[in-house]
């Protein structure tokens, strides 16, 4: 049976008629037209569907839309503010942290959560934090560099910690 769910997405309240079984990822993509959130697997491995739920990175293919009622959802479309790229978006661009771009939205959303927890992560900490985001194109090296660069930007003048 379909029911109305009311979701707070990127600061706006959106409603959709969905079945309880509808996955948040599908509702974002199919019902709310937020197709920046991608689906790359079916076992909660690849992280292409990562969005922020109340500020925390979550795999939206492993969450029912009905579970998300009452939560603040942020998708890749909601990351830039007033037309300004988020420092992570900027850094992925500058450091060539993407190729086909399919994993990129999820990768960036996970990195947002990481940098909220740890403003100066080491390379090892970054690699650990994004192990639930698969990228088949970049070999991860420039993604790590991008996250490090964004972390530096977000810290402002704070000098970077030596790589471990």
């Amino acid at each position: 049976m379909k029911r109305t769910v009311s979701l707070s997405v990127n600061g706006a309240t959106r409603t959709a008629e969905v079945e309880p079984r509808a996955l948040l990822a599908h509702v974002l993509r199919d019902d709310l037209d937020l197709t920046g959130t991608h689906i790359g697997c079916d076992t909660s491995q690849c992280g292409a569907c990562t969005v922020l739920i109340d500020g925390r990175a979550v795999k939206s293919c492993t969450m029912l839309a009905v579970q998300a009622e009452g939560c603040q959802i942020t998708t890749i479309e909601g990351l830039a503010t007033n037309g300004n790229l988020h420092p992570l978006q900027q850094a992925f661009w500058e450091k060539h942290g993407l190729q086909c771009g399919f994993c990129t939205p999820g990768m960036i959303m996970t990195a947002v959560d990481l940098l909220a927890q740890n403003s100066n992560p080491s390379e090892g900490e970054i690699r650990h934090a994004i192990e639930g985001n698969y990228c088949r194109c970049t070999g991860y090296q420039n993604i790590v560099a991008a996250i490090q660069a964004a972390a530096a930007t977000l810290r402002g003048a704070t000098p970077a910690r030596a790589a471990s």
């Binding site: 920046g36 479309e77 830039a80």
Partner: peptide, 21 residues
């Protein structure tokens, strides 16, 4: 130089096949 395809990809505004409606 930076890639010209990236702005749409990093903002979630690219159109992959399953995005076509």
């Amino acid at each position: 130089i930076k890639r010209r395809e990236d702005p749409r990809l990093i903002t979630g505004r690219a159109t992959y096949t399953d995005d076509v409606k």
